[in-house]
């Protein structure tokens, strides 16, 4: 069978379209875990990042986070997270290990971009705002947060794309998601499953990148827009 025939065979299999191993089910798993991970990571780190940025103490922490984050392989984080959760009594095949790893991976870009965003508001702007009588809280809510929004949204983009990519590896720790097709495709030598899974994962990641890139540009104040698709190089690939 050629590759195309195998792909067609996989796509015409009824199990591909309904049941626990169907495309809708796998896509749903992949999406919910990604969204939940990013949301939880945001709830956990944004307040701290905003505060550190506001008191202008965060840049050292931010660069340390970036460097450590790069040296830790996503696959390794996932494996360690699996190890720890199983030790703590979680069942194999449950999503918790993946969720914890994804939260850990989403946190650094959200943290560093927010800190950098708030600290990049010029000191003179902040001073002017204070000079006009704004309190610390008002400076934060009316000046620093609005001006740093594009960078925070960029952090969101970086985190989301990274999470979607790493969720694919969830299949290697006995979980589902679209990566299941790829891992099973390798294991069963099922070319159709492999290719369809890979295309779906690739499309999802690229769509997230482009979609959130557009959101990022839309969030930039007029006159401060950049032309390209953002800078994927700021996150590490998975």
């Amino acid at each position: 069978m050629t590759v195309w025939e195998e792909v067609r065979a996989f796509l015409t299999d009824p199990a591909t379209w309904s049941g626990p191993d169907s495309i809708p089910a796998r896509l749903w798993e992949h999406l919910w875990i990604s969204v939940v991970a990013v949301v939880i990571a945001a709830i956990l780190v944004l307040p701290l990042a905003v505060w550190l940025g506001h008191i202008r103490r965060g840049s050292g922490v931010a660069s340390t986070v970036v460097n450590i984050g790069r040296a830790l392989p996503s696959f390794g984080i996932l494996a360690i997270s699996f190890l720890i959760l199983v030790q703590l009594g979680a069942g194999v095949g449950e999503p918790w290990a993946v969720l914890v790893a994804l939260i850990a991976l989403a946190a650094p870009p959200l943290f560093t971009n927010t800190v950098t965003g708030i600290q990049s508001v010029e000191a003179s702007t902040v001073e002017a705002a204070r000079g006009m009588g704004l309190t610390g809280k008002e400076v934060l809510s009316r000046v620093e947060i609005p001006l740093s929004t594009p960078l925070v949204v960029e952090g969101l983009r970086i985190a989301t794309v990274q999470v979607i990519a790493t969720a694919t590896l969830g299949a290697l720790v006995a979980w589902g998601g679209l990566g299941r097709y790829i891992v099973d495709g390798f294991a069963r030598q099922d070319m159709g499953r492999l290719i369809v899974g890979a295309v779906l994962v690739g499309l999802l990641a690229v769509l997230a990148e482009l979609g959130l890139g557009a959101l990022q540009r839309a969030s930039a104040p007029k006159g401060a827009r950049r032309g390209d698709i953002g800078n994927p190089a700021q996150r590490s690939t998975v």
């Binding site: 590759v3 794309v161 979607i164 990519a165 790493t166 694919t168 590896l169 990566g179 790829i182 891992v183 495709g185 390798f186 070319m191 492999l194 290719i195 899974g197 890979a198 295309v199 994962v201 690739g202 990641a205 690229v206 990148e209 390209d228 698709i229 800078n231 994927p232 190089a233 690939t237 998975v238």
Partner: peptide
């Protein structure tokens, strides 16, 4: 743009796409 999109594709998917 092109190298950026390449960078975005998860590695597991790229390995799979290269298999055929």
């Amino acid at each position: 743009w092109v190298t950026g999109l390449l960078y975005t594709i998860p590695s597991l998917a790229l390995f799979a796409l290269l298999v055929p």
